[in-house]
């Protein structure tokens, strides 16, 4: 299991990296944490001719609050989320996800930006960011632009960035008061991708849900929001019956594939169950 040959660049500035990307086009791959890319290269499922290693670029890593947003640098390692007081105290949905991505050693290399940019429906951050209504900053030869997360995942393993753009930042709007979130993932064992996982971020007014975003992991070809489920929740006085309906909507609107993790029926039904559990936990946290 040895990767194919490639030309290696280790730019030290983002401009340099973009120039290299621009030059080499689709032949080039950005190497961030490498925890998905390198195994794919070792199996020769991915054989890029050029690797642009961005690990040496300063300023791409870090977690801070700024202008009503939690700003996460693309090169922020997953384990930094676990160690961040800010994340742990104010972003429980993100904190939940941070402990169930891959395993503790992989999380020391794996990056938040990579997890999103890979646009793998099995990855955990896409659903989390969809639920948070995050924004992604992409920088290319013509400068930076902001992409709403709802527009970011365009197809199976395909994101909305151009070949010569680099994801530099993710911005999560600071939740309003009386908000809560939760990420509940069912995996076959530690380190596995989800059989299904549900990200919920909602805002309550008493017993009424006044805003909610629900997103699903690994039960759809493209990372998805469960919009029917959201509609069944927002504006409702939340009762067990309402939650049951929301769960049923989520189970019905996803489009899972049968595989070793389970059949379509199983994945739909546990999506229903996990959605209910995530909503209950999010409401508990909102109060």
């Amino acid at each position: 299991m040895i990767t194919g040959q490639f030309t290696y660049f280790a730019p030290t500035t983002i401009e340099e990296a973009i120039q290299l990307l621009d030059e080499h086009g689709f032949e080039a791959k950005i190497l961030a944490g490498g925890q998905s890319l390198i195994p794919a290269m070792r199996f020769r499922l991915s054989q890029p001719g050029v690797i642009i290693d961005i690990n040496g670029i300063d300023g791409l890593s870090g977690i801070r609050e700024e202008d009503g947003n939690l700003v996460i640098g693309a090169l922020t390692r997953e384990s930094m989320l676990e160690g961040s007081h800010l994340v742990q105290s104010r972003y429980p949905l993100l904190a939940d996800a941070a402990t169930v991505i891959a395993d503790p050693v992989v999380r020391n290399m794996a990056t938040v930006g990579g997890n999103i940019a890979h646009a793998d429906p099995a990855n955990d951050h896409p659903a989390v960011m969809l639920a948070y209504n995050a924004e992604v900053t992409a920088v290319g030869p013509n400068g930076a632009r902001t992409i709403a997360i709802d527009d970011f995942f365009v197809d199976f393993f395909e994101n909305a960035m151009e070949d010569n753009e680099i994801l530099t930042e993710i911005r999560i709007p600071t939740p309003a008061s009386n908000s809560g979130g939760a990420y509940i993932k069912l995996e076959r064992k530690v380190g596995d991708y989800a059989i299904s996982a549900v990200a919920v971020q909602l805002t309550m007014n008493g017993d009424t849900c006044i805003a909610a975003r629900i997103a699903l992991t690994n039960v759809n070809p493209v990372p998805m929001r469960a919009e029917n489920a959201e509609r069944a929740l927002v504006g409702m006085t939340v009762t067990d019956d309402v939650i049951e309906t929301v769960g049923e909507e989520a189970g019905a609107e996803c489009d899972p594939s049968p595989d070793l993790r389970g059949s379509i029926d199983y994945k739909r039904d546990i999506t229903r169950v996990l959605t209910k559990r995530a909503i209950n936990l999010a409401i508990e946290r909102a109060h």
């Binding site: 925890q35 290693d53 050693v105 020391n108």
Partner: peptide
Amino acid sequence: CDTTNCGACTVLMDGFTVKSCTVFAMT
């Protein structure tokens, strides 16, 4: 293994554990 699952190759890099079969030496 070849897939970051087993951890037999774990080393510390700048104080953090990494799976050294999934890191290029250049990094």
